[in-house]
């Protein structure tokens, strides 16, 4: 057992866990944050994507002990109270989910890609989104509405940026 300290969704957490504990198990079993899902055992489906220190990672492919001191955001920590994150809202608006199992990972990957492209000052068009979704598999939606939702959320977030720039 090793003591692990993390900040998860803004709250400090501390647990003694075996060294073999994957971040996904730590979140699901130790913290009971079951919104992070596990859909494969070869690090490919992306249902388990969370943010570690602001970057998307596959929580099934990271040891909790190796992340001591990190800030972790899961799907449960994305909304501001009752107010949905624009990516969550866009998924609802565009019918970008059916069974909902891949959805948390899709949303976390979607937010990550919008953040990265904004930071780099690059456009996130549909073709780019499809490439960026390489590591997220959905069996229900045929991706059409997921791509549309991420496009729309990117535009909304970009739009929300604009007034701030104008005010400067």
């Amino acid at each position: 057992m090793t003591n692990v300290n993390l900040t998860v969704n803004g709250k400090p957490v501390r647990r003694d866990v075996p060294d073999t504990t994957l971040l996904s198990d730590f979140l699901r079993e130790d913290l009971r944050l079951t919104g992070t899902h596990v859909g494969c055992d070869t690090s490919q489906c992306g249902a388990c994507v969370v943010h570690v220190n602001g970057k998307a990672v596959k929580s099934c492919t990271a040891l909790a002990v190796s992340l001591d001191g990190a800030e972790v955001t899961t799907i449960e920590g994305v909304a501001q109270g009752r107010e949905l994150h624009p990516m969550q809202a866009a998924f609802n608006d565009h019918h970008a989910l059916q069974c909902g199992f891949c959805t948390p990972g899709m949303i976390m990957s979607g937010i990550d890609m919008v953040n990265r492209y904004r930071a780099a000052g690059k456009d996130l068009d549909a073709e780019t989104i499809r490439h960026e979704l390489e590591g997220n598999i959905c069996r229900c939606t045929g991706y059409h509405n997921i791509v549309r939702a991420i496009e729309d959320a990117a535009a909304r977030i970009q739009g929300a940026d604009a007034p701030a720039h104008a005010a400067e």
């Binding site: 994507v49 492919t61 390489e134 590591g135």
Partner: peptide, 9 residues
């Protein structure tokens, strides 16, 4: 290489 999440690690 891999995908965006893999490339972060």
């Amino acid at each position: 290489i891999g995908d965006a999440a893999v490339r972060h690690m």
